[in-house]
Nucleic acid binder design. Sequence first.
DNA 1: CCGGTGATGTTC
DNA 2: AACATCACCGGG
Length: 204
Amino acid sequence: MGNKKLPLSFYESCDTLTLARKLLGCELVHESPDGITSGIIVETEAYLANDPACHAYNRRTPRTEPMYAGAGTIYIYLIYGMYQCINVVSNVKDIGEAVLIRALQPVEGIELMQQRRQLRKTKTDIKIKPVILKELCRGPGKLVNAMGIERDTHNNHLFTEGPLYIKESDPVDFEISSSSRIGINVGVDLPYRFFIRNNLFVSR
DNA sequence: CCGGTGATGTTC
DNA sequence: AACATCACCGGG
């Protein structure tokens, strides 16, 4: 069964496009103070160093520094002022590439995920309507919220150390589909989005 | 199932 | 000014 935490070699031993595919079927786990939540990764996007849509494309700034820290690093950024997205950094130190996690199939701690997703995290937290299972982690901002992931806590840490990590995939057969990436205006022609075909929890 | 709109604040 | 988004609303 797939209950082993992935070692650094998993992240280091392939290129970014391959890693984006290999992460499908693996389980993202967060052992938080409030409880454990986890979900199977069902959708990813790759961002390469020579790719204009990549945050690290021709720029190395304080924000993107974790992308240059080497494979297995956690890169979390704030988007549209109120949402956060989590990436698995890939490639070697000083080459800025990463895989965005876009959707999870919830596994563990579903009640806790429901509770977290009822709150939108701003200065004054906003309550939203109850969220159905299918929508809990269906999108990069949603899954970060449901999993209790925070940039202040986890950014620039490693997936191989600490309470936020990835477990190896169970040997389940599935087909991988690809498409162009979502929500970008450059690099739209590149088929760098990967997802498990026919999985109900994929976004869009 | 769409499509449109406003919220929100860091980053360059 | 842009931004790797989302919740909510209304229409079909």
